[in-house]
Computed example of a mutant assay.
Amino acid sequence: MKFRHYKGGIYELVGAATLESDLTPMTVYRSPDGALWVRPTAVFDEMIELDGKPMRRFSPLP
């Protein structure tokens, strides 16, 4: 599944992981250059505000 970051980048969801130190759920995703990224799932899924409008940090693409 692919997602668009609010700044415009397209990323591919790789999967879910758990941070060993405190068991935080994490989301693993890949950028177009092949780099792997990870961030807490709560942050990946959160709503942000841009120019006064609420939007998802990462929006799923059809």
Rank of each mutant, 00 (worst) to 15 (best):
M1Q: 06
M1F: 07
M1G: 07
M1I: 05
K2F: 11
R4K: 13
R4A: 10
H5E: 05
H5Y: 08
H5T: 04
H5Q: 08
H5A: 05
Y6D: 01
G8A: 09
G8I: 07
I10H: 09
Y11A: 01
Y11W: 10
Y11H: 08
Y11P: 02
E12W: 03
L13W: 01
L13F: 08
G15I: 11
A16D: 15
A17R: 14
A17N: 13
A17K: 12
T18E: 15
T18Q: 13
T18I: 15
L19C: 11
S21C: 10
L23E: 13
L23I: 05
T24M: 15
T24Q: 13
T24S: 15
T24F: 13
P25S: 08
M26F: 12
M26E: 12
M26Y: 15
T27W: 03
V28A: 07
Y29C: 03
Y29L: 06
R30T: 04
R30W: 02
R30C: 04
S31V: 00
S31I: 04
P32Q: 10
P32W: 02
G34W: 02
G34D: 09
A35M: 06
A35H: 03
L36D: 02
L36E: 07
W37R: 12
W37N: 10
R39N: 08
R39C: 12
R39V: 13
P40N: 09
A42S: 06
V43G: 02
V43L: 09
F44V: 06
F44N: 05
D45F: 06
D45P: 05
E46I: 05
E46A: 05
E46W: 05
M47Q: 14
M47L: 14
M47R: 13
M47E: 14
I48S: 07
I48C: 10
I48L: 13
E49T: 14
E49A: 01
L50D: 04
D51R: 08
D51T: 06
D51N: 12
G52F: 00
K53N: 00
K53A: 00
K53S: 00
M55N: 03
M55T: 13
R56P: 04
R56V: 03
R56F: 06
R57Q: 10
R57I: 09
R57Y: 02
R57M: 11
R57T: 05
F58D: 01
F58W: 07
F58Y: 12
F58L: 04
F58H: 06
S59V: 12
S59Q: 11
S59T: 15
P60H: 01
P60G: 03
P60N: 04
P60D: 02
P60A: 12
L61V: 12
L61T: 00
L61M: 11
P62Q: 01
P62Y: 01
P62F: 01
